[in-house]
Simulated scan of single mutants.
Amino acid sequence: MQLKKYTDYALRVLIFTGMKSGDDLASIKEISEVYAISQHHLGKIVFELNKLGLIETVRGRYGGIRLAKQPEDINVGAVVRDLENDFYLLECFNKHSNHCIISPACKLKHVLHEALEAFFHVLDQYTLKDLIVNENELLELMGL
């Protein structure tokens, strides 16, 4: 199972903004510099996270972004499900384009489906708060 870079970057944005305290806002420029990700790409991710209600954007000269929810209310599994649009590990996972002739009797798809469920079972046990519990170490690695 491999997540898209988009999801990876979105989780990094949430981690970064989750470590901001109070009314302290993060900026796309700041996040871009810390993670070495293009501001343009981050802008798309921030737009999506805002649409999902995970972050808020504040416009203006002193604007930026912040979490729209408490870190303990942002479930990692839910975020990944919201951002990933394709969990077709094999052709047979997609009912609309399954051309595999052994699909009706194949056990592999059931094994992989069970593995995918286990993957999400683990992610569902964690929140953003769990990902930033070592905040001091993360800030040091980010050079902040």
Rank of each mutant, 00 (worst) to 15 (best):
V79L: 07
F16Y: 14
T17D: 03
F93T: 00
G43W: 12
D130C: 05
K5P: 06
Y88M: 09
T57F: 02
I31P: 00
A10E: 02
V133A: 10
D23R: 12
H41S: 10
Y62N: 01
G22Y: 05
I102V: 13
V46R: 00
S38Y: 03
M1L: 10
E140F: 14
N75L: 03
V133L: 12
F16T: 06
T127I: 03
C106H: 02
L52V: 05
F120T: 00
G18T: 02
N94A: 08
L11M: 15
L14A: 08
S38F: 06
S21A: 13
S103G: 05
Q39M: 07
H110M: 13
V122W: 09
E48A: 13
K51F: 08
V46H: 02
L14Q: 09
P104I: 00
E30S: 10
N98W: 03
G18E: 05
A105R: 14
L3S: 02
K51M: 08
K69P: 05
S27L: 04
E135D: 10
L139A: 09
A68W: 05
K51N: 14
L141A: 12
L90H: 03
A10Q: 03
K4H: 12
I31S: 00
R12N: 12
L141G: 11
H121I: 09
G43C: 07
M1G: 14
V34T: 14
R61A: 01
G18Y: 07
Y62W: 04
C92S: 02
L116C: 03
A115H: 14
M1P: 15
F47H: 15
E72D: 06
S32Q: 04
I28W: 01
L90K: 09
T7Y: 10
E56W: 05
E135N: 08
T7A: 04
V79Y: 11
L108S: 09
I45N: 10
Q39Y: 04
E140Q: 15
A105N: 10
K4N: 11
K29A: 06
E30M: 11
V133Q: 14
E30N: 14
V13H: 07
E135T: 11
I74E: 00
A118I: 08
D130L: 10
A26G: 15
I45Q: 06
A10F: 04
V80I: 14
G18H: 06
R66F: 03
